[in-house]
Amino acid sequence: MNRFKDSEHLLRVTGVFLAGIVLFLCLRAWFVPKSFGQYGHYRADSITEIAALPIRHAGHEVCESCHADVLEVKHTGKHANVNCEACHGPLAKHAEDPSIKPVLPDTAVLCARCHEANSAKPKWFPQVVTAEHSQGLPCNTCHQPHKPGLKDTDAKPADSKTADSKTAEAKK
């Protein structure tokens, strides 16, 4: 009896601690997100939320469903496996609402991104030193971007002795 009386104050502390633990468990049950733990130690709903983020690149299949004519040309050339948005940029907005007109890329800048000569590029890849090759002229003066190689049309400007697809060939 005396023993209990002399240790009773410790039970009070234990009581305070237990009350704290119970309060914590209640708060925990209340605050833990509902979908937490459905698949693993995380909020399963966040997967759905991330999957629902907006798409910016439509994907070439969507482009091709309208622009079948371009696809036909492209398939016969070296750019057959280059997707539309690799050059035209992200166009999901345009796919959603075709009245939103995309801006045509400037070929003088666009083509150089890939084809400007760089010693670290793989040797099989066609490269030119644009400053020598075209002196700043837009590449589509001579080349048809959807089917590269020289245009066989009459639109070839006189000053473009354009350095030869030989430069390009040599680099291959």
Binding site: A51, I55, H57, G59, N83, E85, A86, F125
Partner: peptide, 18 residues
């Protein structure tokens, strides 16, 4: 993840020319 769960490829793959 928002693309591949809809049958599209990733943006980087879509844009990779080679």
């Amino acid at each position: 993840y928002h693309r591949i769960t809809k049958g599209l490829t990733t943006a980087c793959c879509e844009a990779c020319p080679t």
